[in-house]
Amino acid sequence: MLNPFRPQSASPRLDSLRRLSLFVSLTPSELRILDSLLHERQYQSDEIIFDAGDEGQAIYIVLDGDVLICRQGDPHGGRIATLTAGTFFGELALLDNAPRMAQARADTACTVAVFFRADFLGLLDTHARIASKIYRELARHVGARMREMAIAAEAFQHL
């Protein structure tokens, strides 16, 4: 039947989402609500996902393949991290629309789920419980990153 708005009955990405640290405290029904807000995109190997300096509007969740985070325009020498399926990047865009710190490009052909800040802010109005759980996990994640950076800076000083 021709129905472009037909809801997907059982999204295969639910399993990937369930394993993500950001959504670990969501119940299955809450995950389904979140899943309905995600956009799925496919990128070819070496295709740019976003540039450093772009206004951050969304968080990206890697569902399949690898994503390279690197310095702008320097994918080989400026490699910062390689993200595999089940990880996410661009998470600070959930907090504000500050410019992206680095470039993200597909390291292999990959599939990502995109969660827009506007939809996240909408969740705060309609499903505050889900949004607060995501906020809590995001705060933990950002805190862990800050600790890692502090330890790395300390180690660098001792060298």
């Binding site: 472009p4 708005f5 037909r6 809801p7 309905s36 807000l37 956009h39 995109r41 990128y43 295709e47 740019i48 996902i49 976003f50 772009d54 206004e55 509007q57 969304a58 995109v114 827009f116 506007a118």
Partner: peptide, 27 residues
Amino acid sequence: KDGSRFKHFLGAAVPNAFFEKSLYLLH
């Protein structure tokens, strides 16, 4: 009922390069 699905339907038609900006402007 289908307003949010319409947004996904439109988003799927936008090429990757323009996706984030287009969706933001649609919002």
